[in-house]
Write a protein that binds this DNA or RNA. Structure first.
Length: 317
RNA sequence: GGUGACAUAGCCAAGUGGUAAGGCAGAGGUCUGCAAAACCUCGAUUCCCCGGUUCAAAUCCGGGUGUCACCU
């Protein structure tokens, strides 16, 4: 099988993925597939730091700004949609540039994780939630230890989401989540990616950038955007976004605005740290450390990596 | 100049003779259908400095330094 050459641009929030992805796409004649669990929502433009038309510079962006905030999403849906987008891009003779900070999405796509169809699960999940209330998480964890000791040994009791999910899969399919996990990795990926990661040697520089970007978001009307958002019914996925929920206590009159902004910055810093933890273990990534470099220098460094791989020819269509 | 209070981790801070709580910030990590979520782990061989009392001192005593408050 001929694998599809793709470029993956990853890194923490505010590390400059958008600009680099666009730069690479322009150089090779590529199109961007966003791998961001929040930028895929419609609206939420300021909070999710969605690129403007100007920043996109004419490069088509897929899986961005298409889903109503009232709708929930999942990795499984992402992988299916991103594969379709990649097919489309390749059929045009272009190169897919996957760019985003949602590590789970990027990895699942590029490693071709198989998400099998599951029967409708609402009832089972509800029943489990009910039991968590009445019996407590300890009892459910003990049950998981019985039916799927392998998964139980990898989970902490307090991680209720995962414990519940593991039991849900078991009751839904009659199969343990560990068995399914094994099977999900058996198909070889059809992608042949070059991974480029953006980071700073000096973490403080990243944090400074984050702080500045939050201030900038406030200046551009984040409060207004949040107010509009709270007028809508909230779906599970979108409500997890960093941006509005940190401002909520201010709207409720519980804390002063400066404190809400400070909390927002801190939440973003912590998010960035978690992203780095995720990507750090991926040893296929060629890291570019931005400290003190210009956008041009960073693009040049990235191009040196992609060119050295010998996988791409310039120009595209 | 005088009087008094205080000095504990990057910050806030408990501890008044028995071997340094807690919170925040920060760091490291886990991750397969809500992942910008959820979850786990980690800071003081030492309490401003010097000396003394005591089996034992962050805790008591003396001196020094610093900060703050009030007075002149």
């Amino acid at each position: 099988m001929n694998k599809l050459p793709v470029i993956a641009v990853v890194g923490a929030t505010a590390s400059g993925k958008t600009a680099l992805a666009v730069g690479l796409a322009k150089y090779y004649g590529g199109e961007v597939i966003s791998a961001d669990s929040m930028q895929l929502y419609q609206g939420m433009d300021i909070a999710t730091a969605k690129p403007t038309e100007e920043e996109k510079a004419g490069v088509p962006h897929h899986l961005m700004d298409f889903l109503p905030v009232t709708e929930s999403y999942s990795v499984a849906r992402y992988v299916a949609a991103a594969n379709a987008a990649a097919d489309l891009i390749v059929s045009r003779g272009h190169i897919p540039v996957i760019a985003g900070g949602t590590g789970l999405y990027v990895d699942s796509l590029l490693d071709n994780i198989l998400f099998e169809d599951e029967p409708d699960n609402a009832a089972v999940r509800e029943a489990l939630k009910q039991r968590r209330e009445t019996e407590g998480i300890g009892a459910l964890f003990a049950e998981l230890e019985r039916v799927d000791p392998e998964t139980a040994s990898q989970l902490h009791v307090n991680n209720e989401n995962r414990v519940l999910r593991a039991l849900e899969v078991y009751y839904l399919t009659g199969e343990t989540i560990s068995e399914r996990r094994r099977r999900s990795r058996m198909r070889e990926s059809c992608f042949d990616p070059v991974w480029i990661g953006l980071d700073y040697r000096d973490r403080q520089l990243l944090y400074d950038r984050i702080d500045r970007r939050v201030d900038d978001m406030m200046a551009r009307g984040l409060l207004k955007e949040a107010e509009d958002y709270y007028r809508l019914p909230q779906a599970a996925t979108a409500s997890q976004a960093i941006g509005y929920k940190e401002l909520k206590p201010f709207f409720d009159g519980v804390i002063p605005p400066e404190e809400a902004v400070e909390n927002l910055k801190r939440a973003t810093r912590r998010y960035a740290k978690r992203q780095l933890t995720w990507f750090r273990k991926n040893d296929r990534i060629h890291w570019i450390f931005r400290d003190g470099k210009t956008e041009d220098e960073i693009l040049a460094e990235a191009l040196a990596v992609t060119e050295a791989s010998g996988k791409y020819s310039r120009g595209g269509a």
